[in-house]
Simulated scan of single mutants.
Amino acid sequence: MNIVFTPYGWEWRIKRGDLSASLLRPIHPLHQDLAYFGGWKLVVIVLWLPIAAILAFIFQPTLNPTPLEIGVFAVAIWGAYLIRSMFLWLLGMITFWTTRVSALYELYFAVELLLSGRLVPMSLLPPWARDLAMFMPFQWTFGFPIEALVGTLSTTELLTGLAIQVLWILIGLGLVQLVWRAGVRRYGAVGG
């Protein structure tokens, strides 16, 4: 669910001149990316459900989420997608000023792996790392949706988590708008 347009794609867009064509369209490229990957996710979910049913039958997990937890998970996974999209778009837009963003993306990805609950569950991190993660967007893209479904969070924590996701979406969207305006002014078409 959290596969989004990566900074590598930005390098490719600019080098090939595809961004120039996107700028001529009446829709913002961000909307195009969100719609493309969002639509693709709906197809993947439908294709994944039979596999999930077979795996659940084979391994019989002890997962008993309440309807509230299932609902929060369904909303949180899309919130996670939006947060991750905004922040990887921000990182990708660095290519307006440089031709390569891969080293920065690898550093970002390493920090994301460690502080999101993706590589190591948040509960296993040292207290200082959990505290740091609380003030960064990473936990809200992987750890929170998983914890919402596993059923370890109270109703207050579930609703607070959704509110924090909305906050990170708004912060990311605001930053994308600022960087987009500055970057498009700086953009010089190449390739294509």
Rank of each mutant, 00 (worst) to 15 (best):
I94S: 09
L68F: 15
V43R: 05
L24C: 01
R25Y: 12
G117Q: 05
A189L: 12
I45M: 03
L125A: 04
T66I: 14
W40I: 14
A52F: 05
L167Q: 04
G9I: 00
A163E: 06
I146M: 07
A52H: 03
E11M: 00
V150K: 11
L107P: 05
W10C: 01
V4Q: 04
L91D: 11
P127K: 14
P26M: 13
A129T: 01
T156C: 15
F96H: 05
T98S: 01
F135S: 11
L104M: 09
W48G: 02
A129I: 04
L88R: 13
I70Y: 12
L42Q: 02
Y187L: 03
E11H: 06
L173K: 09
P29W: 13
L159V: 13
F135R: 09
S102A: 15
F135E: 10
M122Y: 05
L63W: 13
Y8T: 04
D18W: 07
I70N: 06
E157Y: 15
T155L: 15
I171W: 09
V150A: 14
W140R: 00
F96L: 07
N64Q: 11
A110H: 00
P26G: 10
G38I: 00
P145K: 05
Y105D: 10
D131Y: 07
T62E: 06
W12G: 01
V184G: 11
Y108V: 04
L24H: 08
I70M: 08
T99A: 07
S85E: 07
F144W: 13
V111G: 05
Y36N: 01
A35W: 04
A133Q: 07
V190W: 05
P121A: 06
L90P: 11
M93L: 08
E157V: 15
T155H: 15
L30W: 10
H28N: 13
L90G: 07
F109Y: 08
W48R: 01
G174Q: 14
E69W: 06
G188N: 10
L30K: 05
P29I: 11
A148T: 14
F37W: 14
L167H: 08
Y81Q: 01
P126T: 03
Q165G: 06
L119A: 09
V101L: 07
P67R: 14
L82H: 07
F135H: 09
F109H: 01
I169S: 05
P126W: 06
P29D: 11
T141Q: 07
R181Q: 12
L149D: 11
S154N: 15
G38Q: 00
A189S: 14
L113N: 08
F59Y: 07
I54W: 06
V101A: 03
F87G: 09
H31Q: 05
S22A: 15
S123D: 10
S123H: 11
G192L: 02
V184E: 06
T152S: 14
N2Q: 13
D131F: 10
G191I: 03
E106L: 10
A35C: 02
Q165V: 11
D18L: 10
V190Q: 12
P137M: 08
A182K: 15
G38L: 00
W128R: 04
I51F: 04
